[in-house]
Amino acid sequence: MKKDSILVERTFNVPASKVWSALTDISDMKQWYFDIEKFEPKVGFKFDFMGGPNEDTQYLHLCEVTEVIENEKLAYTWRYDNYPGNSLVCWQLIDRGEKTIVRLTHTDIPSLAEGSPDFSKENFSEGWNYILHTSLKEYLENDES
């Protein structure tokens, strides 16, 4: 993996189908990820959402699905409206029966960092670690989800 990439990995105590649903079902996504209005796990599908480091600083994220292998892999571009750069987020699911290893990689981050200090590798690393180790973990391993 390149130095300009982020890799975050975690094993969840749920089957891959449940993780896949969390990554691709809009009602699931809204509970742990971002408030995305429309999403379809289809190559070429474009989606966007607002997000940022705090309520006062929000950015329009523009994404396009580039790869889909059901219950195994989801990848999409990740860039910001009116800012330079384009990166790639890839979710890989490794099925271990009643457990699933989730490997998230985010590549080409330096192209984004030129646009704002908010888009630094350190900030992305902190964000993705929070998403995998806190918000997605709590969502997936909550008995009610």
Rank of each mutant, 00 (worst) to 15 (best):
K2S: 15
K2P: 11
K3T: 13
S5V: 11
T11G: 02
F12P: 04
F12H: 07
N13K: 14
N13I: 03
V14R: 11
P15R: 06
A16M: 07
A16T: 13
A16W: 07
A16K: 15
W20K: 05
S21M: 10
A22N: 08
A22V: 06
A22Q: 06
A22L: 06
D25G: 00
I26Y: 02
S27V: 03
M29H: 01
K30D: 04
K30S: 00
Q31S: 04
W32D: 00
W32Q: 01
W32L: 00
Y33T: 03
D35Y: 08
I36N: 01
K38N: 06
F39Q: 05
K42I: 12
K42H: 08
K42S: 10
K46F: 03
F47G: 00
M50C: 01
D56C: 00
D56R: 08
Y59C: 06
Y59P: 04
L60Y: 09
L60H: 12
H61D: 08
L62P: 02
C63Q: 07
E64V: 09
V65N: 02
V65S: 06
T66A: 10
T66C: 07
T66G: 06
E67N: 12
E67I: 04
V68Q: 03
E70H: 09
E70T: 14
N71Q: 14
N71F: 13
E72T: 12
E72P: 07
K73Q: 13
A75Y: 00
Y76S: 05
T77K: 01
W78H: 11
W78Y: 13
D81Q: 14
D81G: 00
D81H: 13
N82M: 08
Y83H: 15
Y83G: 05
Y83R: 15
L88G: 03
V89W: 04
W91S: 00
Q92E: 15
Q92D: 10
I94G: 10
D95F: 07
R96S: 12
E98I: 10
I101R: 15
V102Y: 09
V102K: 10
H106P: 02
T107D: 14
T107W: 03
D108H: 14
I109A: 02
I109T: 04
P110A: 11
P110D: 10
P110I: 11
L112C: 06
L112A: 05
E114W: 06
E114V: 11
D118R: 12
E122L: 09
F124N: 12
E126R: 14
G127V: 02
N129Q: 14
N129K: 14
Y130M: 09
I131C: 10
L132N: 09
H133I: 06
T134D: 12
S135E: 02
S135L: 01
S135R: 11
L136A: 06
K137E: 02
E138D: 13
Y139V: 10
L140F: 01
E141N: 06
E141W: 08
E141H: 07
N142M: 07
N142K: 11
S145V: 03
S145F: 01
